[in-house]
Design a protein around this nucleic acid. Sequence first.
DNA 1: ATCCAGGATAGCG
DNA 2: CGCTATCATGGA
Length: 281
Amino acid sequence: MDHNLQSIPAPHFDLEKTLNSGQVFHWTRLGRGFVGALAENLVYLEQAGETIRVTAWHAKAAAHYLALDHPLPEILKTFPVDPVIQTAIQFSEGLRIIRQPQWECLATFLTSPLKQVQHIRAISLAIRKRFGRRLQRDGMEVFSYPRPEQVSGIPLAELLECKLGFRAANLLATAKIVASGEMDLEALRNLSTEDARAALCELPGVGEKIANCVLLFAYDRLDAVPVDVWIARVLNEVYFAGRLKVPLRELKSFAAHYFGSYAGYAQQYLFHHWRLTYRRR
DNA sequence: ATCCAGGATAGCG
DNA sequence: CGCTATCATGGA
């Protein structure tokens, strides 16, 4: 597995946490690293201290994908000094919010409602294996995510075999809109976060939460804050302790303001920490 | 067995 | 406008 790997510096970075924190769902452990598809290329990644070793030719793309240029120490300094977020930061040390390709990020989160992280992963891998392009290299094999043009042509019954349930119709309908050009995902880059969010919410199956996931994980909008059941749980149990039935809009407003201009990062650390340590009472 | 999961949406008052 | 029931599947 160590043929033709290129080293790139990666300070303040934890590969495992980054790939297994519920922002991206298809990377698979292989040897001491991970294998997956970066757009249409098979890429192998492994970490050695403050260095990432990447399959040659993909170093530059990988560094961008992994957001190794995000000024993590500076970002952390902008967070409020309270024990809850500071504990989550420690627990999540080295977790970076990566830059995913727009379509596969959108498509993957379209399959996420009312699903656990491992289910989203299973669905992503099933769709890739069945409809994506097979990529091989040095005995490794992965599958890319099918483009919107291809997804739009999949019969609903076939898509349902990937165990999407009621989410399949939304994925199909959105794929048709994107494939037709009616929605230009690349053009959203030129919009304000607010306008891009509104545009994403026009797509079938995309509400405010999924739109914020896409903005945060694929558009580098680090102030976008997805409020899912876990974030709502943290806010209710900690920041609104003692209050009953806090309206969701109040939770969202609080999260978007309290954590500062990198609230998306703060949100990801809270999500990661609580999801892996929470015990029901 | 019952509850829950990185929610969105139509339909109600 | 805000609130509720419902959607499909599998793990805890």
